[in-house]
Write a protein that binds this DNA or RNA. Structure first.
Lengths: 178, 178
DNA sequence: GGCTACATGTAATGCGTTACATGATTTC
DNA sequence: GAAATCATGTAACGCATTACATGTAGCC
């Protein structure tokens, strides 16, 4: 009963019916600051949810494009989701490659470390700009709670970028002292 | 070749020999802001690394306590670790239950959402205080690079706590407006 | 008397990643 | 002509989680 593709997909479908393709879009964009997943997780998850009776499939035939399978949540799916929300909040799960590298990479030269920091900064900046874009575009019509988590995401990436910049500055100073 | 227990264990052992128990200690404490893992991941990982020739076991017999298996990194282990560092930096992986709940939980009443925020805040505060403790205690004798990643960890938790507080305030305002 | 720290492991299960496989249409 | 978008899936593999299993010593 922990945070996994199953519940996120269900939550997405509780808003409106969607195809696997659309769910994946969400996994990599608007939602990516708290959950990510690939096709290899989306389609099997959808299949399982259907088997469990949590969602229903409707095939939409399209002529110029591949057919779609649109899924919608069932009553029993809503129950499962509600049970999820009743559980205590799980701790955030983080795995950070940069942090590991900085923590252990003491013998590397500063250039290497600065490069790592730069790479990571770019990654965070890219994500931040997605979130910032969402905020700028939708913040007026967005329900408050969504704004909340968006804010958390923005803060998170911003804090990470700031911290990385600070780290880079510290390394630069260190270099000059030599 | 992505961030997994294997490389973190190897990196830990590159500093000094350790037992599985000690590695687990690191996974849940000093390092937990960028990697976490349980015994079920530590011991099998160690076994694999030994099989691959990356580490060596030495059994230390103790009379008043259970025997220890102390592992140390081998030359070939260092090579594997170096190859890891040569790879491009991976993006951070995050899964955040609170964010998901806030993002989707629009129909919940404010009380429920405030409770989620409170739970999450406590979790982050607990972790922050571990890191802060480490900083206060060791920052003078700690090598710079470790200080860097510690700083990132502290910033991360602090930002999360701030954002959560802000969210709670927004919800409170919203409540009063009713 | 009970909890925590010390100490190591296995087994089952499962979620997720990567790579594979296909193919039309639109945009640059 | 190349790349991106739309669209769905499978198969293999593997890392990790949870629960199980055991036992002493020291501290409150």
């Amino acid at each position: 009963m922990q945070l996994q593709a199953k519940y996120v997909a269900l939550a997405l479908l509780s808003k409106r019916p969607m195809t696997g393709y659309e769910i994946k879009k969400n996994f990599e964009g608007p939602i990516s600051f708290f959950f990510e997943g690939s096709y290899g997780s989306v389609y099997p998850t959808l299949k399982n949810l259907e088997k469990e009776g949590c969602i229903e499939k409707r095939t939409i035939i399209q002529e110029d494009r591949p057919n779609k399978n649109e899924y919608s949540i069932t009553e029993s799916g809503r129950v499962v989701l509600a049970q999820y929300y009743e559980q205590p909040v799980e701790e955030d799960n983080v795995r950070s490659d940069v942090c590991m590298r900085l923590f252990f990479g003491g013998k590397m030269d500063e250039g290497e470390m600065l490069d790592w920091i730069g790479q990571s900064r770019k990654q965070h900046e890219a994500k931040l700009s997605i979130l910032q874009g969402m905020y700028d575009q939708y913040h007026q019509q967005m329900p408050k709670h969504q704004l909340l988590s968006l804010t958390i995401g923005i803060r998170y990436h911003q804090a990470k970028i700031d911290a990385l910049l600070e780290c880079a500055a510290m390394l630069d100073n260190h270099k000059e002292e030599k």
